[in-house]
Design a protein around this nucleic acid. Structure first.
Length: 790
DNA sequence: TATCGTAGTGTTTTT
DNA sequence: CACTACGATA
């Protein structure tokens, strides 16, 4: 056999062999796994095994490089090589080291592979499953969230990025405090501009890679100019505190790569193959980041599902999926449409709901799974019937041997969980509520971490202010303000002012406590310098008197002490896993952590969480309570088709979490925010053909709700959409909120505007408002934060 | 400087 | 309704 012939034979066998390695996958999945060269967009439906595809793709890259799509082959292939490869194909045995070399091309090493996810949980799962698939090499694969990846890039290139490498990370709560300070110092009444509103404008600006100056230039009103100024102030404060917020992590990294070609080319060389999960939820800045990281070869693979895009309100933009092919010329697009998760009843119902959305890429999920049970629709009288029904179902199931953790309750808002907790406690059903209050959001945890933060970063005035008088040490508000003024006057951190307190006459009266505080700081700093993180934590607790303060606080303090204990165990775990890590690393970890990360199916408890948090998870049995107009879809979205579509996608996400059984539940009447409301059944339930559902208790009323909505659509004002029967009608509310067309108003978030149209709906008024700065929007008079503009 | 009372507020938010 | 956050008071 001539050499060229031998090569050809070997190439063919090599392809076959690689294919055989992924024979467990379906043809579409396999194709996605084997297509490693160039840009690839995978449109992966819910439950289509996208994580499996990602893992197999990475495994393929590690074991075979780009061999499947390459004709590259070393010289001197022998007949023996061909024979042994043939044998491997038949026997399915592992290839020898020598053979493995012949099977791999492209010189791709594990550290050339980058995999980006949104949650730590997803990143951890990816790492774990890659390591199960390929073993030791896998540690070198860079699998991480957007934010942790950016932190690493920024710390490594802090000089080029123009920041200090031990920067703090500010979470939403920190940002709000900063903004509140800024508004106060500018004498702006937070009644008309709330810190939240400003921060959301800033956050959006960063998502779109706009600087304060960009915002100023684009401003077309005094209000927008003010926002630009506030943005500017905010960045200045963060800079002076040596801190970045979550959005900055992305924004600064993009700027780093844009402005420093040598840094960019370093990462381009390092990350030859890039993967991004949940691409439908990326912001412009994130997609820009991915674009910059992707080298000339364009080996970028993104996975997403436009039907599961539920974070538009946070800056995610579907343009990233729609414009992918344009941005990366020569892309391939693949679809994964076979669902392995749900029964066909569930999947069909979910398909019916999502098909009502107009703006879709168009995908039809199908499944080989059995039909399974019909979707159960249950109507309760009131919200407690929802809880009673779910509790009794779970109890029955558990008697039958179905574990508690097979059940999940997915709701629209965190406030809904309370009643289930009450019922479950009474029924003795174990449960966990995910994500309502982050561990980090607990005051005691934040306090302790603040102490540690100022040791790591003495410029952190915000966190210094947080703890300077906790526990109370006679340093009052006045004193703090004085220190602040001196500090900003001299352009030095507050801590430095405290260190030299005796130089400033105005601080005379608080000199003693300030000296003591600085002494405390020095002792802590010394401890931080040469002790482990866990020792430091113990020392902080004792030395600051924080623990004593908790001990003195009776029952409440006891709970807090337990939380602090939990913090201690995460420190221990952290030290165990990363013995080399610094205090800085630990704090980063903590501030990028979320409640969700700790969720494990291992303890047998019913899980409750918001629909948003359920993305990416699956459960045998899913309950979705609160399927009512006004709740889901929520009031704010009910009159805007775009927002309804987002709610519908959220509903689709929820429904497709279920493997075997799905319960859609609503109540005829419910207490919400202090008033009893009657809500019609959610349109999403109506979008499911009745023959697909098994209705309990819904009877005639169910139809009435449907008729109600139909009639209302004909704009019959006599029929109430949502009749509000308040206990005692809040007089302020009902008299204050009278608006008519032509009125000028002030909205807390959107500022000034004029009412175009006011339509009475029940006790409420639907307003169409043309805002001076934000254009046309719709709002409900009773709920929107609106006042007449004098 | 701490505490008490009331006015205000109330989606979703992976990081 | 249930929570917080702020301001008036002791």
């Amino acid at each position: 056999m001539p050499d060229s012939e031998r090569k050809k034979t070997f190439l063919n066998l090599r392809k076959k062999f690689i294919e055989s390695r992924f024979k467990k996958l379906n043809p579409e999945q396999r194709k996605a796994v084997l297509s490693v060269k160039g840009p690839l967009l995978i449109l992966a439906g819910a439950g289509s095994g996208k994580t499996t595809v990602l893992i197999n793709r990475i495994q393929n890259l590690i074991e075979f490089g780009d061999a499947y799509e390459s004709n590259e082959i070393s010289d001197g292939i022998t007949d023996a090589d061909i024979d042994s490869l043939k044998e491997l194909l038949v026997s399915g045995k592992e290839p020898s080291a020598g053979m493995r070399k012949l099977l791999k091309t492209g010189n791709i090493m594990p550290w050339n592979i980058l995999a980006i996810t949104f949650t730590n949980k997803a990143a951890d799962e990816l790492k774990k499953r890659i390591s199960d698939a390929v073993g030791a090499d896998s540690n070198e694969v860079f699998a991480s969230t957007f934010h942790s990846a950016c932190v690493r890039f920024l710390r490594r290139n802090s000089d080029a990025a123009g920041i200090s490498n031990n920067f703090d990370i500010y979470d939403t709560d920190d940002s709000q405090r900063v903004m509140k300070d800024i508004l106060k110092s500018r004498g702006i009444d937070s009644k008309f501009i709330s810190p939240k509103a400003v921060l959301s404008v800033i956050s959006r600006a960063k998502d779109e890679m706009n600087s304060p100056d960009d915002l100023r230039v684009a401003a077309s009103s005094a209000r927008e100019e003010l926002f630009a100024t506030l943005y500017h102030d905010y960045q200045l404060r963060l800079k002076n505190s040596n801190a970045l917020d979550f959005d900055d992590l992305i924004y600064f990294t993009v700027r780093l790569l844009e402005n420093n070609p040598e840094v960019k080319s370093y990462y381009n060389n390092r990350f030859k193959y890039i993967h991004v999960d949940e691409y439908q939820d990326t912001s412009y800045a994130q997609s820009r980041l991915i674009y910059l990281l992707t080298g000339k070869e364009g080996n970028i693979c993104v996975v997403g599902d436009d039907d599961q895009s539920i974070y538009k309100f946070r800056g995610a933009t579907i343009e990233n999926i729609l414009g992918f092919e344009e941005r990366f010329p020569g892309s391939r697009v693949m679809k994964l449409e076979q669902n392995y998760r749900s029964t066909s009843s569930i999947l069909n119902a979910a398909n019916r709901v999502i098909s009502n959305n107009v703006g879709r890429k168009g995908k039809v999920l199908w499944t080989d799974n059995e039909d399974g049970d019909l979707i159960t629709v249950y109507k309760g009288e009131r919200e407690n019937d929802e809880a009673a029904f779910i509790a009794s179902k779970i109890w029955e199931n558990n008697k039958k041997g179905i574990p508690y953790n097979a059940h999940a309750i997915l709701y629209r808002m965190n406030a809904q969980s309370k009643i289930f907790e009450n019922y479950f406690i009474r029924a003795g059903i174990p449960y966990v509520v995910m994500g309502s209050l982050r561990f980090l959001d607990r005051a005691e945890i934040k306090d302790i971490l603040s102490y540690m933060s100022i040791l790591n970063n003495p410029y952190d005035d915000l966190r210094l202010k947080r703890v300077i008088n906790v526990p109370a040490r006679k340093i009052g508000q006045r004193t703090v303000e004085n220190i602040e003024n001196i500090a900003s006057g001299l352009g030095i951190p507050m801590l430095e002012v405290i260190a030299n307190a005796s130089d400033f006459p105005i601080l005379e009266r608080s000199l003693k406590p300030l000296k003591e505080f600085y002494g405390l700081y020095e002792r802590l700093a010394e401890c931080a310098a040469d002790k482990s993180i866990s020792d430091l934590l113990t020392y902080v607790l004792e030395e600051t008197g924080y623990l004593d303060m908790l001990k003195a606080d009776g029952e409440k303090g006891q709970v807090r002490i337990e939380n602090v204990g939990e913090l201690m165990s995460s420190v221990k775990i952290f030290e165990d896993e990363q013995p080399e890590a610094s205090l800085n690393d630990f704090l980063t970890d903590m501030f990028l952590a979320s409640d969700l990360d700790n969720y494990s199916e291992e303890n047998d408890a019913v899980v409750m969480m918001t629909l948003h948090n359920s993305k990416g998870l699956e459960f045998d049995i899913v309950f979705m309570p609160g399927m009512e107009e006004g709740i889901f879809p929520g009031d704010a979205s009910r009159y805007d088709e775009k927002e309804i579509e987002e709610e519908r996608r959220l509903c689709y996400v929820g429904m497709t979490r279920a493997r075997k059984q799905l319960y859609l539940i609503f109540a005829e009447m419910r207490m919400l925010f202090g008033m009893t409301r009657r809500n019609p059944v959610s349109r999403f339930i109506e979008e499911i053909p009745e023959e697909m559902t098994n209705s309990i208790n819904t009877g005639e009323k169910f139809l009435t709700a449907r008729q109600k909505r139909e009639r209302e659509e004909r704009r019959d004002p006599a029929i109430l959409k949502t009749s509000i029967t308040t206990h005692s009608i809040d007089k302020k509310r009902s008299t204050k909120k009278i608006f008519k067309g032509g009125d000028r108003i002030i909205h807390k978030v959107f500022g000034r505007g004029i009412i175009l149209k006011a339509t009475e709906i029940g006790d409420d008024i639907l307003l169409e408002i043309d805002f001076d700065d934000f254009g046309k929007k719709k709002a409900m008079a009773n709920y929107a934060p609106i006042q007449l503009d004098k």
